[in-house]
Design a protein around this nucleic acid. Structure first.
Lengths: 125, 125
DNA sequence: GACTTTTGATTACAACTGTAATAGACTCGA
DNA sequence: TCGAGTCTATTACAGTTGTAATCAAAAGTC
């Protein structure tokens, strides 16, 4: 298992864009972040650069532009982040985390049903 | 609602000790972290200091020693961290987060039962 | 009272982050 | 071919974090 790069908050936003659709040029990313953030395009370029440095992104040159794409999957990053978060805040215990979230978030009946299904499956396995 | 201080990873370890039992002197904290970490006592003093600066901890003087105690509760910090984590990694959606955790963590039948109970309650509410 | 020990306070310092600005290379239109 | 625009690369700079060392004050020891 390759060691995952540590992706910061701001960098994560950039990764999300590229996980959603890639490859994409810097300008594509800027465009797709325009609504969600108020970042200067320079800032986004910097983040792209750092992510390349961390080997979270790769790119192909296309003329003088780069087309960036993820080198790590969203799922594996999310898992890694989740683990470290769970350990840090809840000492690794899943139940209190979920209990806490359930308490404060509204869930649609469909979501509740979905989760119940997952639990059932877990109970059987 | 008072704004919560941002508590870093290392600082969180220190907070956990004080959430568990306080007030405690710096040396108490050092002692109680000896097993869990390999930090130099100086480092722990620094962290205590920073946490006081951030108003996450308060202290009473006891001679030339301080007795530290939390100014913010573990529950509120955990909630705040959870929210920001959920937003960052899962775009605020609870179901995928739980699904992800359920997938990779082992749960005892009791835990599953407990979670099912929580869900039922949620479904009714 | 002078010296050592102990405790918090101050200072250190590099890596990482957020947030850009500037520089250098390349391209395209005139 | 020359200037204007457009990319990426490099540099900037302050705040946070991890990880301590040093300083200064107080307190106990001889």
């Amino acid at each position: 298992m390759k060691p995952l790069p540590r992706i910061s908050d701001a960098e994560w936003e950039v990764m999300k864009v590229l996980w959603e659709k890639s490859p994409a040029t810097a300008n594509d990313v800027v465009e797709r972040l325009r609504d969600a953030t108020s970042w200067n395009p320079r800032t986004i370029k910097t983040l792209l650069n750092r992510l390349v440095g961390k080997k979270a992104l790769g790119f192909e040159e296309d003329g003088r532009m780069y087309r960036y794409y993820p080198l790590v999957s969203e799922a594996e990053c999310a898992r890694a982040e989740s683990r470290s978060f769970l350990n840090r805040v809840y000492g690794g215990a899943l139940t209190p985390l979920i209990a806490n979230f359930l308490q404060e978030k509204e869930l649609s009946p469909e979501e509740i049903e979905e989760l119940r299904r997952l639990l059932d499956q877990k109970g059987k396995g």
